[in-house]
Design a protein around this nucleic acid. Structure first.
Length: 239
DNA sequence: TAGGCCATCTGGTCCT
DNA sequence: AGGACCAGATGGCCTA
């Protein structure tokens, strides 16, 4: 997703070689070809460096290099003349750097995947206006409350069919005993809601799971970014 | 300009 | 050993 392409942080100077990484919306699971190429290059370089660093060359195949060594020919190279210790130190640095870049790539992909999942979640949440974009925390909180509201709706609907007694205390789908408020499982740390304090404390406001703090504070006034999911007969408790 | 949100980098820890 | 996951740091963009 990456809503703000221009919001991307500039790549580190030593990462400028990673062509394509700055693309605004790289597919989370499908790295760009440039990215793949770069990764391959990195791996090749790492292997090369490892080979150069290892005096024993345990995996050396009986190929050209082996022959060259047998012939006593030196491999011409960039490290010619450099002290061995300095060379290996530099090599270790390069390997370390290469691994870091790989880890960065993985982390970036991981976060892209996470954001994609978050986007998918946004897609199924009703917002007003429709194209309003919830922040990450809002999305999670809203989803939490929304699920709770739907569950509660089902419970009440089922209870209504069974009669008033069931409505009084019946457990609904997946609700175990009674109906746990969304907050009962919402351990949002400081955002911990204290839901049952007031029967009307809960809202579907994305920013206030089960009505933590004052709802007005979290529910932006006009033009509101979102509205409670109107079509759902939300329990009064959550309105 | 301050504060919120975000993407990215980074080092540490855990898991396979 | 390498990858996944996590949290802290950093810097950019946007808005009130």
């Amino acid at each position: 997703m990456l809503v703000k392409a221009e919001g991307l942080a500039p790549p580190a100077e030593d990462e400028l070689l990673l062509l394509g990484l700055a693309s605004p919306a790289p597919s989370p699971s499908l790295p760009s070809s440039a990215e793949e190429e770069e990764e391959e290059e990195e791996e090749e370089e790492e292997e090369e460096e490892l080979r150069a660093a290892s005096p024993a060359r345990p995996v050396e195949a009986p190929g050209a290099r082996g022959l060259r060594r047998l012939e006593g020919k030196r491999r011409p190279g960039r490290t010619r003349g450099a002290p061995r210790t300095a060379r290996t130190a530099e090599t270790a640095q390069r390997i370390k750097r290469s691994r870091r870049l790989k880890a960065n790539n993985r982390e970036r992909n991981r976060m892209h995947n996470l954001n994609a999942a978050l986007d998918a979640l946004r897609d199924v949440l009703p917002t007003f206006p429709e194209d309003a974009k919830l922040t990450k925390i809002e999305t999670l909180r809203f989803a939490h409350n929304y699920i709770w509201a739907l569950t509660e709706t089902l419970r009440l609907a089922g209870a209504a069919r069974l009669g008033p007694e069931a409505a009084a205390g019946g457990g609904g789908p997946g609700t175990g005993e009674g109906s746990p408020s969304p907050a009962s499982s919402w351990s949002g740390g400081s955002a911990s809601p204290a839901p049952s304090a007031s029967p009307y404390a809960c809202t579907l406001s994305p920013a206030s799971p089960a009505g933590s703090a004052s709802d007005a504070e979290h529910w932006p006034p006009a033009p509101g970014r979102f509205a409670p999911p109107v079509p759902v007969p939300v329990p009064r408790r959550c309105l």
